[in-house]
Design a protein around this nucleic acid. Structure first.
Lengths: 253, 253
DNA sequence: TAGTGGTCTAGACCACTTC
DNA sequence: AAGTGGTCTAGACCACTAA
């Protein structure tokens, strides 16, 4: 009876959501109009209300619909993201540095995670990791733009030798060399201060304002296989992201 | 039977979530440790699994816990280390702040752009702008998470009165009130220091490390109609962006 | 008053991790 | 094999909106 993991191995509500997204994009449900009621969707898809609501929750999360108790569900937008579309390369832009920057390794070491480190690395206390640290510069001689610590599972340590000798991001090397498949990437950005440890390497005073970017790469079975932390001192680096409105030849009704 | 709307008129899952958030903050469930299983929470609160899962969903949304199928639920943060965590599922959410934050205006003024300001605002020197400044907080009384300056073209100044009285983002108000159509949005993030001017309003020392976020909204004919600059002091705010593989259109294979 | 979405129950089977 | 979270069903009552 449960065909939730049908052809694509996706939950039923996700299939439903995908289909409804397509239909909204196709103009089947124009912006400003009402969606079918949950009851009607139950009948159409032959699923329970739980499944319908999980599907609609996805549409709501990406801003396509708004639900109003007592009133109904209204179509808010024809495309997700408030009409803005990230360019196809933006995920890569978010993850990697421009080609004209160079990374040079200054230290490689193996560590055993204590409790605090384990939390940071999303692993268990006692597990081992290889940590590759270094400086990223613009060109070969420019001012450093960040200090980076890359933490890898020991079985991927072989990659350490190639780092800095290629412009390929570490996660791509892991993907291609070991067949790891990235399921999710998480990026954190927050204000910080440059620690004494590598202040001189960055050619700034300790305590200088900085922006820290943490990236966590998750592979199969929610296994975090790479974590990197980059500290960018004030004035050396700006993160810039642009969105354009997607152009569509047909206006919504 | 259903006491979901008990004393506070809140859903049962929200009461549960609030309590669990308090308990995590109090150290009852230390970061890195496992939460009780869903089954145990059902028993403790005498609710069905649906209610437990709705509560845990809230905790997950704000980054306090991570759930792993087959393994359990782990405590990820105590909500104190990097301050308020905004979890984003898409880049476009960089544009707005969560509903539980409030903006209060502390100053409104008109300025004429000098050359440096004009560069920042992407306008010509000598042009006028209205600048609305204020503080954003979590809830009504929490610590400030940022100081924001919003620069608007004078013809849109009427919007100033509505700011802080609605949760609608400013750019949306401009879009709906004046029919402006956003063609592009640009977001910049970089390290900075808290200026003396509003350090006390943010309850920090001048010079404290901060993360500045600049958003530029471009309308018709590449005309920048709104620019905002937000300064987030260290420890008050973290951006967390997660990408799933699903983001890419998966070929039906 | 009828119908909507919001909340909730008490089950069930599944996918996954761990032992 | 046991236990976890993920998905799903078939009901129920509630708060709210609109006719």
């Amino acid at each position: 009876m449960d065909e939730s993991r049908g052809l694509r191995g996706q939950p039923r509500y996700q299939e439903m959501a995908d289909l409804l997204i397509e239909e909204i994009a196709a103009g089947h449900y124009p912006v400003g109009s009402m969606m079918p009621t949950e009851h009607e969707l139950c009948e159409r898809f032959e699923v329970s209300r739980y499944t319908v609501r999980e599907a609609l929750r996805r549409l709501e999360e990406i801003g396509l619909i708004a639900r109003r108790q007592g009133s109904g569900t209204i179509v808010q937008a024809r495309d997700s993201e408030h009409g803005y579309v990230q360019s196809l390369s933006s995920l890569a832009q978010l993850l990697q540095y421009p080609a004209e920057t160079r990374f040079s390794v200054s230290e490689t070491r193996t560590l055993t995670a204590d409790r605090a480190t384990a939390r940071f690395l999303r692993c268990r206390a006692g597990e081992e990791r290889v940590c590759i640290s270094g400086i990223r510069r613009i060109g070969a001689t420019g001012k450093p733009i960040c200090w980076t610590d890359v933490y890898l599972r020991p079985e991927y340590a072989g990659i350490a030798r190639a780092i800095g000798k290629t412009r390929q991001p570490v996660y791509e090397m892991v993907e291609k060399t070991f067949g790891e498949r990235i399921e999710q990437v998480e990026v954190e950005l927050f204000a910080s201060a440059v620690p004494e440890k590598f202040a001189s390497a960055l050619e700034v005073e300790p305590g200088t304002p900085a922006m820290t970017i943490i990236r966590r790469y998750t592979g199969h079975a929610s296994r975090v296989f790479e974590v990197s932390a980059s500290v960018h001192p004030q004035g050396r680096f700006t993160y810039s992201i642009a969105f354009s409105r997607e152009w569509r030849p047909v206006s919504a009704g």
